[in-house]
């Protein structure tokens, strides 16, 4: 039985398909497992770091140095696809990790904008949301950190390839770049997604399930990349 967490891993890994020789920057457990899976299977040219300043091969061998200052150059050079988290995300892909409520006097102070503005204007930026709910998928974010399509103007390198949640996969491939349902993880219903989303999702007539992992992918996830099953901590059964 493939678990929900494993479908999420597959859905995240797919973000880096066809990326070529770029840095995969996964934030969060499941995107990290997904990026390593992509690197070990269909995207062998990806660069991955140890989460700090070293670029490492899957076996841990160092192959490069990437301190923060060079990381920022890599971002603005564009050869990177980051998958960030989001405390809020809206219909056009605006993302918030800064604060909830009025910025002047927040109800809940969160992290701050971090690198979301520079990421979204310079390299493909996808999002990972482990608990799909109305509190996260909001009509309007309280603070635009990651820039959405309705705020991007003619920003030449702006692109949000996908949003992955514990319920499904989403993109912005609609005429007005409003969020669209791409696939449902097996066991999830369309009603469930609609109920957990504050805005009207674009839903095509035919929504496929998120693809099945191959036997080899399952082996890699379970035996090689995440034998401790940390993925289950981020997304339960």
């Amino acid at each position: 039985m493939t678990t929900r967490a494993e479908y999420c891993v597959i859905a995240c890994a797919e973000a880096w398909r066809g990326g070529g020789e770029i840095l995969a920057s996964p934030m969060g457990l499941i995107p990290s497992v997904g990026a390593r899976l992509a690197r070990l299977t269909f995207a062998p040219d990806l660069l991955l770091t140890d989460g700090e300043a070293t670029i490492v091969r899957p076996d841990g061998t160092a192959e490069g140095w990437l301190p923060y200052r060079q990381h920022l150059t890599l971002v603005t050079g564009g050869r990177r696809h980051v998958m960030m988290g989001a405390s809020q995300i809206d219909r056009y892909g605006n993302q918030n990790i800064s604060c909830i409520g009025d910025w002047e006097r927040p109800k809940r102070q969160l992290l701050g904008v971090r690198g979301a503005p520079v990421n979204t204007l310079n390299n493909p930026t996808s999002y990972w949301i482990p608990r799909h709910s109305r509190r996260v998928f909001v009509e309007k974010v309280d603070m635009v950190c990651g820039v959405g399509y309705d705020h991007a103007g003619d920003a030449r390198y702006h692109r949000i390839p996908r949003v992955v949640s514990d319920l499904g996969v989403f993109d912005f491939a609609t005429p007005d770049h409003a969020m669209r349902l791409v696939s449902l993880h097996p066991g999830v219903t369309l009603d469930q997604v609609r109920e957990a989303t504050s805005f009207d999702l674009t839903v095509p007539d035919d929504v496929p399930p998120t693809r099945e992992p191959t036997a080899e992918e399952l082996r890699l996830i379970r035996e090689v990349i995440d034998p401790e099953n940390t993925r289950a901590r981020e997304v339960g059964a």
Binding site: T76, S98, W103, V113, A116, P117, V118, T120, L121, N122, M143, V144, C145, G146, V147, H151, A152, G153, A155, Y157, H158
Partner: peptide
């Protein structure tokens, strides 16, 4: 000059 900030609420705040 920096290609970051435009379009985000960094400009608003």
């Amino acid at each position: 000059p920096v290609r970051a900030g435009i379009g985000s609420d960094v400009m608003r705040v």
